[in-house]
């Protein structure tokens, strides 16, 4: 057996970070591998996200679809939901957060152990949505830091999977800046928006 070299990098667009995010495993008959400790740790983290679903509203239906067998979030290592914040890494905020709930969400976030990640699932969690009034928190980033925003009312499961993969990419690169999932098709660029509803 010769030496095996596995290079994991995410894609071309993270090219400037490529060198940093390389995980080079050099196996041999003796069976050892070399890599950077930090990269190995990030690689392990991104595939073992224990999730805490903070589910408050109708987006929950899409979250259930995502966790079910058709879209199957377990494929990405984000399988086991933990209903204790102390055992989880990834906080899914799924649905509208009212002003009255905000302290609860903050407490749950504070109880999670580092490293912890937050995904704002849907328009309401991201910005308050159309609840522009006395009762609703205008986006959970007003009280806790958010890693990935997933737009949509509710987002399609594919969009959420995009968000999860974007988060995994950010974990690999050690990037804690805000990420936003883009639509696959930009409606502004479309000559005829009806095309969106037609099959190709």
């Amino acid at each position: 057996m010769g030496s095996v070299s596995a290079v994991t990098s995410m894609s071309d667009n993270s090219a400037p970070d490529l060198e940093r995010s390389q995980l080079v495993l050099e196996g041999s008959q003796q069976g050892f591998a070399t890599t950077r400790f930090e990269d190995l740790l990030n690689w392990a983290r991104k595939y073992s996200l224990f999730q805490y679903p903070f589910v408050t509203a109708c987006c929950a239906m899409e979250f259930m679809a995502l966790a079910g067998p058709r879209f199957d979030m377990a494929r990405f290592g984000a399988e086991a939901p933990r209903f204790s914040p102390r055992q989880s890494d990834l906080l899914w905020v799924v649905g509208t957060i009212s002003q009255r709930q905000a302290p609860v969400l903050k407490t749950v976030y504070d109880q999670m152990a580092d490293p912890k990640y937050v995904i704002a699932f849907g328009t309401c969690a991201s910005s308050g949505g159309f609840y522009d009034n006395y009762t609703t928190l205008p986006g959970i980033d007003k009280i806790i830091p958010v890693d990935v925003f997933v737009p949509g009312c509710p987002p399609r499961p594919e969009t959420v999977i995009d968000g999860l993969l974007l988060l995994q990419d950010k974990i690999t690169r050690g990037d804690r800046s805000v990420g936003i999932v883009k639509p696959r098709v930009d409606p502004v660029q479309l000559r005829n928006p009806v095309q969106l509803r037609r099959k190709a």
Binding site: M10, S11, D12, N13, S14, D141, K142, I143, I144, P145, D162, L165, L166, D169, K170, R176, S177, V178, G179, I180, V181, K182
Partner: peptide, 21 residues
Amino acid sequence: YRQADNEKLPPFDEHEGMSFG
């Protein structure tokens, strides 16, 4: 409300949100 120090505003980077080819 917290003050976010790394707030991004649109337009985002060309590949923002498209991380995996």
